[in-house]
């Protein structure tokens, strides 16, 4: 259980028995398109608002994960979810459809690993046999919430990021076949005084470094024990900063095992649109539950550390010139083979 200052060890091996990843049309053009269970060709998902489309993404992913796990929705004991809209409406509304006991979470883009670590904790402590956890983001809905209208012609700087339209959901069970969640490090807020909402990578990089450093300190292991250490959505700018921060702090993480979900989800031909990289809480969830777990199933990866990063600002706080508090949560997942 508690190991060191802020890390949980899951001795009872909570298992990810099923995952589901649903994406939008822009993600379908990316290099990870084959790892999605369902891709929508229409950004509206046949709904009459982007907010409803975001809820639909999460509902679809939940239904798919439950089906892939061979369960009925009443078999799921708890549902943990988060998103980026005000009052996390997409998560609550999807929970209304599921009619499952529900805990809503907000950790901005770190919600994906926040929900996975808490779900693992619940299953590990035998407080439930099946827990569903997931996050969702939708480009139209989130840009509307945090930035300008989607069709507004403003020029974004090269440090800006592109909100991913995707939902990722994992079904955790006390027993079963699949990768095991072995430990989780809960991050603390790191605020380096950055106020520019178009530079999330630069704001979040120190939080990611802080949590990763804490993880290796608490567990007293070498970074090379992992086949892959992947951050949530630092983008190119934040990734470069994080890599240099590791060097500065003498934490030796080889570049070939350090990657970023925000840089993996889109291809080079989508570069002009995504600028620094993908972001949003659907980003790390979709890449982890889709691409990375698929690679784990193929035997290409044995043990990975997913570090989801979140910028805990609101449109109001940055207009009032507040700096951006950031957080990161790390979860390690091991292949059962």
């Amino acid at each position: 259980m508690l190991h060191g200052h802020q890390t949980w060890l899951f001795n009872n091996q909570p298992t990810i028995v099923a995952t589901a990843v649903v994406g939008g049309p822009f993600e379908a053009l990316g290099p990870l398109a084959d790892d999605f269970d369902l891709l929508h060709g229409d950004l509206w998902l046949e709904q009459d608002s982007f907010e409803k489309a975001q809820k639909k993404l999460l509902e679809d992913a939940c239904a798919k994960a439950i089906q892939k796990g061979g369960l009925q929705k009443q078999d799921v004991q708890f549902f943990l979810a988060g998103d980026l809209l005000n009052q996390i409406i997409s998560s609550s509304f999807a929970a209304r459809t599921l009619a499952t006991p529900f805990l809503g979470l907000y950790g901005a883009c770190s919600s994906s690993m926040e929900s996975l670590s808490l779900a693992a904790l619940i299953v590990n402590s035998r407080a439930a046999n099946y827990v569903l956890c997931g996050t969702v983001s939708h480009n139209g809905a989130v840009e509307k919430q945090f930035r300008y209208p989607t069709e507004y012609g403003s020029q974004k700087p090269p440090t800006a990021q592109w909100t991913v339209t995707a939902a990722g959901v994992a079904l955790l069970a006390a027993e079963g076949e699949g990768p095991k969640v072995t430990s989780a490090t809960i991050g603390k807020i790191v605020d380096m005084g950055i106020t520019d909402p178009y530079n999330m990578g630069g704001a979040m990089a120190p939080a990611a470094v802080d949590t990763i450093t804490a993880h290796f300190r608490d567990l007293d292991i070498d970074p090379r024990e992992y086949d892959l250490i992947v951050t949530g959505d630092l983008g190119r700018v934040g990734y470069e900063i994080a890599a240099d921060l590791f060097k500065k702090h003498n934490l030796d993480i080889p570049a070939e095992i350090f990657k970023d979900c925000g840089m993996m989800i889109y291809g080079p031909d989508q570069q002009a649109e995504v600028l620094s990289g993908g972001s949003g809480c659907g980003c790390s969830a979709a890449v982890t539950y889709g691409h990375l777990l698929n690679r784990m199933k193929k035997g290409e990866l044995r043990k990975i550390l997913v570090v989801a990063t979140g910028a805990l600002l609101s449109p109001l706080s940055y207009q009032q010139k507040e700096s951006i508090p950031c957080i990161a949560h790390a979860v390690s997942i091991e292949s059962s083979q």
Partner: peptide, 8 residues
């Protein structure tokens, strides 16, 4: 430190 690594 970050400024030196961000594209302007």
């Amino acid at each position: 430190f970050a400024k030196a690594r961000e594209p302007g």
